[in-house]
Design a protein around this nucleic acid. Structure first.
Lengths: 326, 326
DNA sequence: AAAGTGCAAGAAATCGATTTCGTCAAGCAC
DNA sequence: GTGCTTGACGAAATCGATTTCTTGCACTTT
C-alpha cells in the first residue's frame, strides 16, 4: 500500500502537496498532474485510518437493529445502505437482540471507532446515548423513539393499528382480539391503542383476554393465539402488531384446524411473500425500506453539519389490499 | 473522550505504562492499580483509530453478500456476526447485488479501512482479490468459490441437488424439470448437475426445455415455471436451485390453478416459514447460519496467524423431511 | 524603488495509540 | 565489590494522513 510520502517522493513534491491534490486545495496545474501520475503509477489509495485519526471522524454509519433476520429490519437496513452508498458511506450492521447490554456495547464501539453517526431502533427506553452524544455524533432513532433528544423517523403506529382494525370491522368481523408486543414498548403500545380505539368506537364485542401481550417472535404469537382460541367465547378475528407474531398466529389457527378463510387476521407488517395469503388476511404494509432511507438521509444531513431543530418524521403505513366484505 | 495521556497524567505515570496496562505487559501491581483507577475515573476507552493506525490492523471483518434481503444470506450473516462477536470483532455487512463493480469497490474499502479480513460470496469468477491479498489480509469464500487461492466454505451442492431430485423420484414423480440459476455460476451449476445425474440414472423422462436458467430472484423463478408449464409435454415436478426461485415457481403454479399437491417441488434452500407447505414440496435445508459461523471461525484463525495450507470445508445439506410416497 | 498583497508549496505539528530503545536499580554470581 | 542479568518504566519514534505555520517569489501599488 503506497503512502502519501512515496507518492510525494516520486512526484518530487512534498507530502502536503499530495494531500492538497486529493482534498481540493490550491495546487498548480503542473504539480497536480505530477502527483496524479505518481499516484496512478503506485496505485495509491489514501489510508482511511490515518485520515480518520487526524480528522476525528469517519465515513461509517452504525446501524443497530434488534434482529436482522426479521424481514422488516432487513428491508430497513437495505434502505439505510442504499442511501449511505450514495454518499460514499459504509454501514456497520449490528444485532442487539433487544438486549440493552449488547446495545450499550455496540454504542461504545461506535464511539471508539469514530463512526460518523448512529441509527438505532432502541432496545429499551433506557438506552444510554451519553457516550455518543458527548462526542457530538448525530443519532437518529428509527421505528422506536427514545427519551433522549435525537431525530427520529417512525411509523404512524396508531393510524396503522386503526387501519388494520377498521379493515376487519368492515369485513364483517365482530369479535376482534389483539396480539400486542411486550407492554411498555411505545411502538407496539400505539398500535394496540389504535385497535382499542376502533373496537371501542365501533362497539364490537370485547372480552377479557382479548388483549394478549407476547414477545415479538413467532412462538409468542402462536402461544397468544392458542390462548385466544381457548377462551370460553373466542374472537373471530385478530390484529397482530408485528409480522412474526402474525406468522405464529396463522400457524396456531392452522394447527387448530380452523379454516383461515373464516378467521380474520390483520397484520401490522408484511408476511414473507410466498403465496397470496387467505383472503381474510389484511396486511398493513410498513414502509421499512423507506424508513431506513429517510433515517439515513437525516443522519447524513446532520453529519454534514445541519443544525436545524430536532425533527421527528412520521411515515404513514398503507393497507396492502382494500378491505373486503365477507 | 479521554486519551491515554490524560490517564497517564492523572495516574502519575507515562503514557507507555498506561498502554502496557491495557495490553498485558509487565507493570507493577501498584501502578496497575493507579492506572486502572485513573482510567475508571476518566471513563477512558482506547481510541481504536489510533491503535489501528499503529498496529496496521483492526477488529473489523468485512462480509460481502449479493443480497441481504435473501433470508439465506441473512442467516449466513447472522452466523458470521455471532462468531465474530465472541472474539470481539465487528462485522461490516455489504450488499454487492451481484455486481462486480460494487464488489470491487467494497474490496477496496476493506483494504483502505485496514479491515482484518474478508468473507465473501463472490459475484463472479473474476473477483479481483489482488488489493486484499497483497496486504496479506485473509479472505474466506462462502457458498461460492473463486479461482483465487483462498479458504472456502461451501455446501455440497451436487449432493444437495441429488438429494432433492431423488426425493421427487421416490415420491413417484417421473417428469422432473429443473430451474437453475444463471449459467456459469458454479454453485448453481453443481446443483443442476445433481439433478441431471439423477434424472439420467433413474431414466425419468426429460424433454428439451426441462432445464431452465433464471436469475436468482422470485420473478425469474416464476417466468421459468410458466415456460415449463407451457411446454407441449410439461413436467410433473421441478427442482429449483435456490429459495427465491422456488417461491416464484410456487406462485406460477398457484396462478395457473394447479393444485400444488399434484405437482412436486423440491427446493434447495428454505422457504420463508409461514404455514406448513404442501406435502409435495421438498426442502433441502442449507445450513446457512452454520456456513457463516464456520467461515468466520476460519477467518479468525487466519487473522490469528494460522498458516496451515488452504482449506475448503464442505458442509452437507439435509433434507427437511423424509421423502414421501404419493 | 520600497512597501504591501497574494498565492503556491515546503516544514513541521498534530491526531492517540503502540513499541523500540535506553536507563536505572535490584538481584545474583564469582 | 565488580560485573552481568533482569525487570519496570520513561523518552521518543512511529503509523499516514491533514493542517497550520512559514517561506519565497511574483506582482501591485504609491
Amino acid at each position: 500500500m503506497a503512502t502519501i510520502y512515496e507518492v510525494a517522493a516520486l512526484a518530487g513534491v512534498s507530502p502536503a502537496t499530495v494531500s492538497r491534490v486529493f482534498n481540493g486545495n490550491t495546487v498548480s496545474e503542473e504539480k497536480q498532474r505530477l502527483v496524479r501520475d505518481a499516484a496512478q503509477k503506485l496505485g495509491f489509495t489514501p489510508n482511511k485510518t490515518a485520515r480518520r485519526l487526524r480528522k476525528q471522524s469517519s465515513e461509517i454509519i452504525c446501524l443497530l437493529v434488534p434482529d436482522i433476520e426479521n424481514p422488516f429490519f432487513t428491508a430497513l437496513a437495505r434502505g439505510v445502505e442504499d442511501r449511505a452508498q450514495e454518499s460514499g458511506f459504509s454501514v456497520v450492521l449490528c444485532n442487539t437482540d433487544d438486549d440493552p447490554a449488547k446495545e450499550l456495547r455496540y454504542l461504545q464501539i461506535a464511539a471508539s471507532e469514530q463512526m460518523a453517526g448512529v441509527i438505532l431502533s432502541p432496545a429499551s427506553d433506557e438506552v444510554d446515548l451519553g457516550a455518543i452524544a458527548s462526542l457530538g455524533r448525530p443519532v437518529v432513532a428509527v421505528d422506536r423513539t427514545t427519551p433522549y433528544p435525537v431525530d427520529a423517523v417512525k411509523i404512524d403506529n396508531r393510524a396503522a393499528g386503526i387501519a388494520a382494525t377498521t379493515a376487519l370491522v368492515e369485513a364483517g368481523f365482530r369479535r376482534i382480539a389483539c396480539i400486542a408486543g411486550p407492554a411498555g414498548i411505545e411502538e407496539t403500545e400505539d398500535r394496540y391503542l389504535g385497535w382499542k380505539q376502533v373496537v371501542t368506537a365501533r362497539k364490537t364485542l370485547v372480552r377479557d383476554g382479548f388483549l394478549q401481550h407476547a414477545d415479538f417472535r413467532v412462538e409468542g404469537g402462536r402461544a397468544a393465539m392458542k390462548a385466544l382460541l381457548d377462551l370460553v367465547q373466542p374472537p373471530d378475528a385478530v390484529v397482530t402488531t408485528n409480522n412474526l407474531m402474525a406468522i405464529g398466529a396463522l400457524q396456531a389457527l392452522h394447527e387448530t384446524g380452523i379454516d383461515p378463510e373464516d378467521f380474520g387476521v390483520a397484520v401490522l407488517g408484511e408476511l414473507p411473500y410466498l403465496l397470496p395469503p387467505p383472503v381474510s388476511v389484511v396486511q398493513v404494509r410498513l414502509p421499512a425500506r423507506h424508513l431506513g432511507r429517510t433515517a439515513a438521509s437525516m443522519l447524513l444531513e446532520r453529519i454534514g453539519g445541519d443544525t436545524q431543530p430536532l425533527r421527528t418524521v412520521v411515515l404513514r403505513a398503507e393497507i396492502a389490499r382494500p378491505p373486503l366484505s365477507l
